[in-house]
Design a protein around this nucleic acid. Structure first.
Length: 257
DNA sequence: AAGGTCACCAACCGCTGTCTA
DNA sequence: CTAGACAGCGGTTGGTGACCT
């Protein structure tokens, strides 16, 4: 199941399965410094891996709140539904399933759900001769369906934002990852997450853990980071309702800064 | 017990998009 | 405007365990 590790003799980069020690190194490094540059990160983290490999390992396995283990029936249904809408846009689909990576969803689809969807499609065709079924509609005009879906989701997220005012103490978020909308825990996908738990736990926890002392990397690029981060201190006050501060689009712009 | 095949999934590879100088 | 660097995405590969003959 797990690839055995090997060395690329050309550039002395390790390949294959990650060891527990490597995981610990990567996790510890990113938790402390964030991933300011995937290309240089392995060198500073003491890993003989490519930046790509580190990024993948982090995204698919090590990052906080990543879910492992069996997919629920609800998750499977959602994947099938979203695949009808978005096609093989795994990263898009992954934003709708908190805690699941695009890679995991892709594997799930390829190994389990593709066949199931195909079977379902055949049943639909058998039941409704001469009519265009959902799968056919999607394939005929996926962009239109995607637009509608995004519209609906925009409305849904607005509703969530309007109905949910996260309560927390006042925090100053200065993490480069946060400001750049990177995917270190807090992601640009935040706006599309609709889980109450996500907002109240994960989201705020990540803001808190992305504290000032974690923003410095050992690079001489600190100046650059400070420039980026000092653009504006972000104050989150529990006296303010976020729904009054940001509309959906404004919020998106905000987190993608 | 041994060999073959299949299913699963972590990880790799190559391409594309975005950003910056 | 262009080129290079980097991040991210999606397709594919390959190792391993489970199952079958």
């Amino acid at each position: 199941m797990v690839k055995t590790s090997s060395f690329d003799t050309n550039n002395e980069l390790k390949k294959g399965a990650w060891s527990e020690e490597e995981d610990q190194k990567l996790r510890a490094y990113i938790q402390r410094y964030g991933h300011w540059n995937w290309g240089l990160l392995p060198k500073f983290a003491g890993l003989s891996r490519s930046g790509k490999s580190c990024r993948l390992r982090w995204m698919n396995y090590l990052r906080p709140n990543i879910k492992h283990g069996n997919f629920t029936r609800e998750e499977d249904d959602l994947i099938v539904h979203l695949h009808n809408t978005f096609g093989n846009k795994w990263s898009t689909i992954a934003t709708k399933l908190p805690g699941r990576s695009d890679n995991e969803i892709k594997n799930r689809w390829n190994t389990h759900l593709k066949k199931r969807a195909k079977d379902d499609h055949m049943v639909l065709e058998t039941d409704h001769h001469g009519t265009i079924q959902p799968a056919d509609q999607d394939q005929a005009n996926p962009n239109k369906n995607q637009e509608l879906q995004l519209q609906n989701e925009g409305n849904m997220n607005l509703a969530v934002l309007s109905s949910h005012s996260p309560s927390c103490s006042t925090h100053t978020a200065l993490s480069p990852g946060w400001l750049s909308g990177s995917d270190c825990g807090v992601t640009s996908n935040v706006a599309s997450q609709t889980s109450d738990d996500f907002w109240t736990d994960t989201f705020l926890e990540d803001i808190i853990t992305s504290s000032v002392d974690s923003m410095f990397s050992p690079l001489n690029a600190v100046d650059d980071l400070v420039t980026r981060c000092s653009y504006e201190d972000i104050m989150i006050d529990d006296q303010l309702s976020w729904s009054m501060l940001y509309s959906y689009n404004e919020y998106n712009d905000f987190i993608n800064f």
